[in-house]
């Protein structure tokens, strides 16, 4: 109940929809999940800036600046998450951008804690529901406010 109440309060304090950049880094071309998440977030009222495949950290930092992004969502299906995700977080820190990074995809249970330690704000597994996606994004953005 208290969660519902606080979200109403949030709503009345600003009309601006969340702006979320969605991208994949590196060679991995599995974008089914990213495209589904884009639709989930759109239907949750977010503005999704969809970059799609083969973006670099520099691309994403630059886009986040221009689009004044609230959150960055990365999708990873190639087991490269342990190297790529921390590098993204590091690139944002280097640019002094305080924007949370959410990683989705096939992430083994044992990698979740190390990723969080590396500064990833949240991890969404392959079976995450629409409700879970929406709540996670809202929570990580509000945590930075």
């Amino acid at each position: 109940m208290s969660e519902a109440a606080s979200s109403v309060e949030t709503e009345s304090s600003s009309d601006a929809p969340l702006r979320i950049v969605l991208a994949k880094i590196g060679f991995d071309g599995h974008d089914r999940g990213l495209r589904v998440v884009a639709r989930i977030l759109r239907d949750a009222g977010c503005e999704v800036i969809y970059l799609g495949l083969r973006q670099t950290n520099e691309d994403i930092v630059s886009v986040a600046e221009q689009e004044d992004a609230d959150c960055i969502g990365l999708s990873m299906h190639n087991a490269g998450h342990m190297t790529l995700a921390p590098k993204m977080v590091e690139a944002l820190r280097a640019a002094e951008l305080d924007i949370p990074v959410v990683v989705g995809g096939i992430i083994p249970e044992s990698d979740i804690e190390p990723l969080k330690k590396a500064g990833v704000a949240a991890i969404l597994g392959p079976g995450a529901s629409a409700e879970e996606v929406g709540r996670t994004v809202r929570d990580v953005v509000n945590a930075r406010a």
Binding site: P17, A38, R42, G45, E47, L51, Q66
Partner: peptide, 28 residues
Amino acid sequence: SPLTGGAILGDRVRIDANNVNTFIRSVA
């Protein structure tokens, strides 16, 4: 989207290619 107020903004990828000095803003 008229129903949810959300949007998927995908144009900048096609505009962006190699134009480093250009500032692109996606607007819903």
